[in-house]
Design a binder for these strands. Structure first.
Lengths: 327, 327
DNA sequence: ATACTTATACTCGTTTTGAGTATAAGTATG
DNA sequence: CATACTTATACTCAAAACGAGTATAAGTAT
């Protein structure tokens, strides 16, 4: 017998984008559901069960602990995703799935759990890494395809879209006098999604995949809408970096200013002027010298610093007001 | 017979903090469930039913339309609230309620619907309006009570609370060299809540209301956790104002720079230097003169301006980088 | 000893900001 | 219609912040 015709209810999923930085690379922690097979990467996630978990965040922490063995430190809610068809991949007619995405920061050193791994987030968003200059793929692959798309008929024009496709491309990818805004990670993801250039868009049936036949994959795809959640996480981190001392969650207790800079660059995806970064940080009062030195720099030993927790009390928005390369 | 022992499921509520500005006052739109009786104000809200609504936002728009008659323009998701006991007021053992809060902006002129009204948001948060200087109630009522609270034993100390109560009070209310940060609306709400100084805290059972017997109500309470949602909305608006052209959603098509300033002041709750505000706005390129004049100023006629939609294309973060009075 | 590395300090011209003063162009009042 | 009063707008000026360097310090590798 079939299961009874269950009233279509709602299930809440909790999803974590767990970020860590190592060797100057920003990583996100992934799980690969079928062991290590060919399936797509997925963020750790699980269902919220109000009977078991007093709060959403506790539920998230439990799922992450169970799936990855990690105890999370800093956790922040990002966004709730609830569009119908989000789980179209499954094709099931079960209860409607609504997902809450979280950003978590950690300093994890090794992941021993099988099926759990970290991956550089620029594997998923190669166009977001400007540390070595503008990525070639933007000019060579993305922009030509987007401009082709911008000339196709646009059924959405006008309706809730104050800007045309061409303008959106300019804003997102920075051209013709518009600068690159490293915070627009989600906008860029959504533009590429809408243009049908991402693998996920095919699942959604939004655009005939045939339109872009032979398209090289733009970044590594993820399960469901997990890449969108990750894009949201990166956007949030890049923005919040500037007015909240988030970075220190990713650094050890003591660090050199250059290490700090490299972490900020890894997250923001832009190179920074070393001398001015140092001036900014020291003037900001977020940090204090420990009196010790780091010898293994290869050159002059660097002073070690620590985060001044009390800085939170002194400054209205204690972040690293870094600015990218501008236009 | 009782209803069958229903498996405790999840219900998703959609809540809207609808903001509008009139006569230099920021308003939020409320509904009073029992007609216009003595019951507490509530934000428009309703259940998300995936069968009826394709997306969460569509669901929200429908509920708002049904309850208030308003067609919303700008809508933005704020936060998802899911703690157990949020609806403790009801005391029911039904399905667990999770709520998604939204911020909406509108230029509504008149609300004709019965039971629907607008109310100045500083009725709920009188300590947030610094336009005429530091509100007296902070020094005379809030701070004395908070300091009394800070001397009580703190069971949370250390655990997930890097800062002590005294430091949190200083950060939130700006004292001893710490400036007032108008964006910390939610932090202040939560501090007052934790201290048991808000009416809502009594419902939660967190603090014996008797501790503060004879306490004058700190701001007007709202149903459930609606005041927390409103605090989140105000925080978000005050922050986003600075890097997104939100204000223009609240202004008519044409406006003088002084009107623009008054709207910004109403939202941020701080006074601004008129000449510098004008310089900032004109330099920002967000606005262009229409060539017409507003005569009814009482003095020299003011030029009328309009929002330049294309400014979005030119600037990386096109907001009004206003700064409050600082410390 | 010499070249090379990285860290740190200082300089300098430009831009932005805070806080004004000065002037323009109306209305209200005697 | 002269005068005071109102509000709008323009301009000034010193302080601070910023972008892009040069200079110097203190190590390692050969």
């Amino acid at each position: 017998m079939d299961s009874p015709p269950q009233q279509t209810g709602i299930e809440l999923g909790l999803h974590a984008a767990i970020v860590t930085v190592q060797q100057n690379q920003p990583f996100v922690i992934c799980v690969n559901p079928d062991g290590s097979g060919g399936s797509e990467d997925s963020l750790p996630f699980g269902k919220f069960t109000p009977l078991a978990h007093r709060t959403l965040e506790i539920g998230l922490r439990n799922w992450v602990k169970e799936q990855t063995g990690l105890d999370l430190g800093y956790v922040e809610q990002l966004y709730t995703f609830g569009d119908r068809g989000r789980h179209a991949q499954k094709g099931d007619r079960g209860p409607h799935m609504v997902s809450i995405g979280y950003l978590a920061l950690t300093r994890v050193r090794d992941l021993r759990r099988k099926g759990v791994m970290r991956r550089c987030w620029y594997d998923y968003f190669p166009w977001e890494d400007w540390r070595a200059g503008r990525p070639q793929m933007i000019g060579e692959i993305i922009e030509p395809l987007l401009h082709k798309w911008s000339r196709l008929p646009d059924e959405d024009a006008g309706r809730r879209r104050p800007l045309g496709r061409k303008e959106r491309i300019r804003i997102c990818f920075g051209h013709d006098g518009v600068g690159w805004d490293e915070e627009k990670v989600l906008d860029r993801y959504e533009l590429l999604y809408e243009a049908g250039l991402l693998h996920e868009a095919g699942r959604d049936g939004r655009h005939a995949a045939s339109l872009w036949s032979g398209l090289p994959a733009l970044g590594r795809p993820m399960m469901y809408d997990h890449r969108r959640i990750l894009a949201t996480a990166i956007s949030r981190m890049r923005g919040k970096l500037k007015y909240r001392p988030l970075v220190f969650e990713l650094l050890p207790g003591q660090f050199t200013l250059y290490e700090l800079q490299k972490v900020v660059e890894a997250i923001s995806g832009t190179p920074l002027h070393k001398q001015n970064f140092r001036r900014l940080v020291e003037a900001g009062g977020l940090v204090e010298a420990t009196g010790k030195l780091q010898k293994s720099t290869g050159g002059r030993p660097a002073k070690l610093f620590r985060f001044r927790r009390t800085a939170l009390v002194e400054r209205p928005s204690p972040g690293l007001r870094v600015k990218g390369p501008g236009r």
